[in-house]
Design a binder for these strands. Structure first.
Lengths: 245, 245
DNA sequence: CGAATTCTTGAGCGCCCTCAAACCATGTGG
DNA sequence: CCACATGGTTTGAGGGCGCTCAAGAATTCG
């Protein structure tokens, strides 16, 4: 299935790949012709459960998706966020058995492409193979930065860093000191990502506001002083490999 | 260069790949014929620095190597350990600009294979391409488990989890409740990996000993009660995808 | 409009940090 | 072979960051 209404999201996805990888016209045509099917999810739904063996890769078309792990006692850890154009489980092609879960945060639309199809694409175009591998690797490098964030920074810098990452990914190349963007996370989501309690997230965000760095209300992040925020967070976007030329 | 003295380590490496990926005889021959050069490092040496652009992939032949990140103020975070047979920066093929560093812990030998060569291999054998991609993905999934470990578990379980991971990777399939293995880490290394202070690592290891779970002296880990240790650590090795058949 | 989340604030406490010093093992050079 | 330096381990003491528990306010959703 290849509904015309999803052409835009496929183009968004291809555009995202193109930012990081040199794709030929033929490569792009192959991607545009890729068969997929569409699944709509409500908020807080499981897209891939831990332990599942998958046969398809996901492309986020709309909404916000998180990678999650759980711990005895009900603790939950978010290990990554995925926005439209991202492929959250591209690695499942090589490792079909999921050891991390995938959950929607907001109502989301996901395009699913079968592993068999992607595998065939990779066999025919090594260049696309490397492009996919690159996306996977950047996901892993982002994970390494999260480890650093959790292991070395305390709450203020840690949560600031989270906001910085999402700002850089969602709001694109940042050229002004103040700007705003929509981030549909609750403070509980931020707590699950930062490895802190929701209560402390609340107090920390108040502290960030008091410092004149940012505000966060109604799912809107208002960055007031980007350079100062980056300094507090020790944020350096190079690990995201956004590579806008 | 392809010194005969390194045939064993190349075979170890190929064996490791074979545990997780189905390789044909031809695939194995290609890998065995791969040109590489050898670099010897003393302990605590930088193998790849943050910000460097690399042209080669590493294979650990001997020793123990860590992936590291640093933070303003001198803090260091270890985000992964690599043992002989591992490829710590396979991802550098797709993302040559390093955003994480690579450092030896003990004196180590590293085989280096040029990106160009690996790329040619991948272009000729999509199956090997997927095998490499798989190794990369498992590295990323291990990273996700580390995020969970740092975000959700407190020191006792966190450090126990670290020991469990290294036990499963170094000591192979575990069939008895008690066993021992060599792990050439100082308590400071463990602190840098666990995101805690070295002082607290010391007290935590004492607590693990008091609980009868393990001992750690002269770089030898003595596991006394593997099932109980796994329970405390909430360790489930499936994320390592060791897949011994 | 009622129910369910989410946000906010307060209070008390505990895990883990920092600082500091002693102890121990290893290796090096005189 | 000892003196010394170096790096790692251990212990103590005090303090702070962030936790848990709890309850009320605000907001969203069915």
């Amino acid at each position: 299935m290849q509904a015309a209404q999803y052409r835009d999201i496929v183009d968004l996805w291809i555009g995202r790949l193109t930012e990081r990888s040199e794709l030929s016209g033929a490569d792009r045509d192959v991607l545009r012709a890729l068969p997929f099917h569409v699944v709509e999810y409500a908020a807080k739904r499981e897209v891939v459960g831990i332990g599942e063996t998958t046969t398809e890769c996901c492309i986020v078309a709309r909404g916000l998706v998180s990678r999650v792990g759980t711990v005895a006692g009900g603790g939950k850890q978010i290990t990554a966020f995925y926005i439209p154009g991202d492929m959250p489980d591209l690695h499942s092609l090589a490792v079909p058995k999921a050891t991390t879960g995938l959950e929607t945060i907001t109502p989301s639309t996901v395009l699913k492409v079968s592993h068999a199809v992607v595998r065939r694409v990779v066999e025919r175009s090594p260049n696309l193979g490397i492009a996919f591998w690159r996306e996977c690797s950047i996901d892993a490098l982002t994970g390494a930065e999260w480890i650093l964030n959790l292991g070395q920074r305390q709450a203020l810098a840690r949560i600031a860093h989270l906001f910085c990452e999402m700002a850089a990914r969602i709001a694109g190349p940042i050229t002004t000191d103040s700007f705003s963007f929509i981030l549909p996370l609750t403070q509980l989501h931020i707590a699950d990502a930062a490895g802190t309690s929701a209560v402390h997230v609340n107090r920390t965000i108040q502290e960030l506001r008091r410092l004149g760095l940012l505000g966060f209300e109604q799912f809107e992040v208002q960055i007031n002083d980007w350079p100062a925020l980056c300094k507090v967070a020790e944020f350096d976007e190079s690990y995201l490999h956004l590579a806008r030329r």
